[in-house]
């Protein structure tokens, strides 16, 4: 199939070996095609893996951990082949699952020490690492209490701490903000950002909520029905579109008055909400759009409130691309 190749691979090339690289990765469960010839490269920093439930995010993570064999294709994690070097990959990767995974009768402190040991750290080093990562994720005195009594936010922090316990080179975070209230969600996203940027650990973070990832991720990979819909730098998603949004005092009448005048002046304009969206002039047009808008508003006697550049949001792109894609259901 004609795969959509990631647009931005420059960042990956800079770091040498990519954190994750897949070639034609396919997983066919028989009844469901979970991954369909996926080509994707993930570099350093934070990469958001976005897709609706069932888009293949969890399947991809399991294959990357070497827990699930792909039907076809190949993949490398930190330069190690998933087919032959599963144990090496799992020694260098941290995994935070989406579902519950904490024993209720053990304290976070004991649990993170144990999990660090399960990655090969000696006991003393495991204790030191556990204290460090629990501090980083923000679990204070409660770390000595059994985890069964934790709030969702505290559980998510403990899950994240065990993923970091062995100082991995890459962490796979499956829906870390799931079930969190807005304040905890912001804290968790800030933590994710710090792991990718301050800790120097590559992060692949999944979410079915598109909006939250654009704040913390450097790259975004969009999956839909097991196929790669788009992969590019977050900034590409969020680039200005060239369109200007203009708001004037008054209501729909005033808005349409300005819109029609600008349209007649040769700037394609459409009403959008309570503002006028003015598209950029044709390439040969040398007129200054900002001046034209100001002058037109003055001529019409309208009170100009603001002129601002229009930005893409990840949601917009996702919506456009999904609308264009063949939807089997």
């Amino acid at each position: 199939m004609a795969t959509l190749h990631p647009v931005d691979r420059a960042a990956d090339r800079r770091s040498g070996v990519p954190a994750i690289a897949t070639q034609g990765l396919t997983k066919d469960y028989g009844s469901v095609l979970a991954l369909d010839s996926l080509d994707v490269t993930v570099g350093t920093g934070v990469t958001g893996l976005v897709g609706a439930n069932g888009a293949g995010k969890s399947t991809l993570i399991k294959i990357l951990l070497g827990l699930l064999d792909p039907t076809a294709g190949s993949a490398q994690v930190l330069g190690h082949d998933i087919a032959t070097e599963g144990a090496e990959i799992r020694a260098r990767v941290g995994y935070m699952p989406e579902h519950e995974c904490l024993p209720p009768d053990v304290s976070a402190s004991d649990f993170v020490v144990h999990m660090a040991q399960m990655s090969g750290l000696p006991h003393a080093a495991a204790r030191e690492r556990a204290a460090d990562v629990l501090r980083h994720v923000g679990l204070a005195e409660e770390r000595y209490r059994p985890m069964g009594g934790y709030s969702t936010g505290m559980k998510q922090r403990a899950k994240l701490a065990q993923a970091l316990a062995h100082d991995p080179r890459l962490v796979l975070l499956d829906e870390p903000t799931n079930g969190l209230d807005p304040a905890s969600r912001d804290d968790m996203l800030e933590l994710v950002r710090r792991i990718g940027h301050d800790f120097g650990i590559a992060v692949l973070v999944t979410s079915h909520l598109l909006g939250e990832l654009e704040r913390v991720s450097d790259h975004v990979v969009v999956l839909d029905g097991g196929r790669l819909l788009r992969a590019s730098a977050t900034t590409d998603f969020l680039d200005t579109t060239g369109t200007l949004l203009v708001e004037v005092l008054g209501g729909a009448t005033e808005r349409d008055l300005l819109g029609r005048a600008l349209h007649d002046a040769g700037f394609p304009s459409r009403p959008r909400g309570n503002v006028v969206a003015v598209e950029p002039p044709a390439p040969g047009d040398t007129r200054n759009v900002h001046d034209m808008i100001r002058d037109t508003a003055v001529d019409l006697g309208l009170g100009l409130v603001r002129i601002q550049p229009d930005h893409h949001r990840i949601e917009d792109i996702f919506r456009e691309e999904v609308a264009g894609a063949v939807q089997p259901h």
Partner: peptide, 18 residues
């Protein structure tokens, strides 16, 4: 049962030991 019931098994499986 404990590891299976509480999903902790997936954390063990995501670590080097088979």
């Amino acid at each position: 049962s404990r590891d299976l019931r509480h999903g902790t098994i997936s954390l063990y499986l995501a670590r080097p030991l088979s």
